[in-house]
């Protein structure tokens, strides 16, 4: 492993791929990607729903993104960045230290965990975050058992409602607003489907131990269920900053910058961040 690059990209999802391609096409050759999963593609690899590009599902879309990916860009997969140091270096999980001049942080986002919500009651098995279940079903062929309750009708909540319906589960979606909050495309996928939508309420208490038996809503109703998914929001994943302000040598891109609702805007931001990096590279100190 070469130990220094002009630009290091952390995260091999859509934003990181797009930034790497843009840098390469502009003639920047001293770049590398670090990806903690075994292959590039990021969260796209767990998306079985269509709607990406010209109606592809996430996996096919990732494949098209990678079709013209320059083979000479070093990609360190199954590798995690453990820490960033102010001298512009990164400690990797394999013990190596990589030095760089500029860093593109394309680490994506993470789900707000269920435990952080003001929900009382037991902590049984059967409660997951929506993205976690999406990965389990689409990457690991897990077959969940219903009936299911999904908390939150944002995009991920609605996508998972559709997936669970496809698997034949009975699905209830609980939403504190008066309407579904996801994009029209994700609402449209549920049109005419047998789904129970409960607006204007939320989950107050979880029942059952050791297995989930149901949830109590703020209006007092009890909904029996064996699967509970939380889809209550995403947060940019910036743990590597350890709470510090973003220094001028780190440029966040994609969902790590802010939460995007469309893949196209993630890709666009990856590319525009790369352009910005190119303009900064002249002035950035050498290693």
């Amino acid at each position: 492993m070469k130990e220094q690059y002009d630009v290091l990209i952390i995260g091999g999802g859509a934003a990181g791929i797009s930034a790497a391609k843009t840098l390469w096409l502009s003639g920047c050759r001293s770049i590398a990607i670090i990806e903690h999963k075994p292959s590039l593609g990021g969260i796209l690899l767990q998306c079985a729903h269509t709607g990406f590009g010209a109606g592809l599902d996430g996996r096919d879309y990732a494949e098209t993104l990678l079709m013209d990916f320059p083979k000479d860009i070093p990609c360190f997969c199954s590798t995690t960045v453990i820490r960033l140091f102010p001298d512009r270096s990164a400690l990797l999980s394999n013990g190596h230290i990589i030095r760089f001049r500029l860093l593109i942080l394309a680490t994506g986002c993470r789900e707000i965990p269920f435990g952080s919500l003001p929900v009382t009651g037991t902590r049984p098995s059967g409660a997951f975050t929506a993205g976690q279940m999406q990965e389990m079903i689409n990457c690991h062929h897990y077959l969940p058992e219903g009936p299911a309750v999904i908390l939150g009708s944002g995009d991920i909540g609605l996508i998972m409602a559709w997936q669970l319906l496809e698997l034949g589960l009975k699905v209830t979606v609980v939403e504190k607003e008066s309407h579904m909050t996801g994009l029209p495309v994700n609402r449209a996928r549920l049109t005419g489907r047998d789904i129970c939508f409960l607006p204007g309420t939320t989950i107050l208490e979880i029942k059952g131990m050791p297995s989930l038996s149901g949830v109590t809503l703020s209006d007092g109703r009890f909904i029996p269920c064996r699967l509970l998914l939380s889809a209550v929001g995403l947060l940019p994943q910036r743990e590597l900053l350890e709470g510090r302000k973003i220094p001028d040598w780190i440029l966040p891109a994609g969902n790590c910058s802010h939460i995007h609702s469309r893949i196209e805007s993630v890709i666009k931001e990856g590319a525009s961040t790369a352009v910005k990096v190119l303009s900064l590279l002249d002035r950035a100190p050498s290693i």
Partner: peptide, 10 residues
């Protein structure tokens, strides 16, 4: 940790 197992559990 922060994600409460949602990324490693499976």
């Amino acid at each position: 940790g922060t994600c409460q197992g949602s990324r490693c559990r499976y």
